[in-house]
Write a protein that binds this DNA or RNA. Structure first.
Lengths: 180, 180
DNA sequence: GGAAATCTACTCGGATACCGCGTGTCCGAGTTATGGTGG
DNA sequence: CCACCATAACTCGGACACGCGGTATCCGAGTAGATTTCC
């Protein structure tokens, strides 16, 4: 992975909503409007989550995204890797090879094994990945759920249901009202 | 800090050379040519290390940089923070506040405390910082020293000494040779 | 009244601009050893 | 022979462009449901 970007933040927040709306699919537009963020941006990052097997997409009217796994099995690390493509946090430029003391070509003892600086960075990256891998979506949702009042869950489901009912009914009301 | 950039990699490699050249100051040019990297870039990042109290600068001919502390007291984390300015690895955008269910203003329970996603990221960042903080420049140098043959240290000091002798002697040789 | 065809709005998905940060470079101010000069 | 002075190259330090990756946006292909029409 590269580093902890906004895309990852958006993805995690969206996934939390999918966990709340257990069962009923939410479209990228739903997720965006629910959180007051850019719909286009949400639509851009979700295909990555789908390819990683974190969410499942369904097309057409009343389609949307569903968690492809139970929240207990989705680690934050998996989400990060899905978005960032598990690029390394540090890319060693092999400075050790270019030492002026190695006139023509660097000796074998210098290029053997892993660069000492690189090793430190990899160790740090592993510590970070381990931390992210130990937290699941369910853990984060629990933290969130502890703060929200009991009524909030109902409010959310009501909002989603209302939105589902509105879907596809616009044409009907428009023809009823008529253009003139 | 932001993330583990090339500047940090350069800085660490340069500091390793300063540790090897214990006592005699090395200029940014020395460090650059010794490693085959851009002198201008080295010159750009070293003032940050000086402000952080990691190196001490001396001006004028035969000036240069010196470690301001023993290598055992310089952690990799200190170097990272010196270069990056200890910017957070993740900046929370407080998405939770923009929820559409909070019509006018978000309720207090939603904005209270730390965002659950943010908390996970901070924990991961702390794990990384702890790892970087546990490694000192001396540790890295030891790893490097284990690989290099005993003769290498002498070669390095000879190279540096030769370079010091050359310094300031160019004008002399130039006037001696003369333009005509 | 029931079933098929049509039609619309909505969905995902990828290809396309904008912007900020990091990378890389350059030039100016200040300092110290050198070389020459005068006593 | 010694002390002083001007010189010049070297040093640090900050200010200036370039390029890439991430952010944000748009538009096209495909699909499921609702409406309409016909038997």
């Amino acid at each position: 992975m590269a580093h902890l970007t906004s895309s990852i933040e958006y993805a995690l927040h969206c996934l939390l909503w999918l966990a709340v709306a257990e069962g009923s699919p939410l479209s990228s537009r739903d997720l965006a409007e629910l959180q007051g963020i850019s719909p286009a941006f949400v639509a851009k990052i979700f295909p990555k989550l789908e390819k990683a097997g974190i969410v499942a997409a369904s097309s057409g009217l009343r389609g949307g995204y569903l968690l492809a796994q139970p929240p207990e099995r989705i680690t934050v690390l998996a989400v990060v890797d899905a978005i960032e493509g598990d690029k390394p946090l540090f890319d060693c430029q092999e400075i050790r090879e270019r030492c002026a003391l190695f006139s023509a070509e660097p000796p074998r003892w210098a290029t053997q094994g892993v660069c000492a600086v690189h090793a430190v960075m990899m160790k740090a990256e592993k510590a970070m990945r381990d931390s992210l891998g130990s937290e699941t979506l369910a853990d984060v949702a629990r933290t969130f759920g502890r703060k929200a009042p009991a009524s909030f869950d109902g409010d959310v489901k009501a909002w989603l249901q209302a939105r589902h009912q509105v879907r596809g009914a616009r044409r009907a009301s428009r023809t009823r009202e008529g253009p003139g």
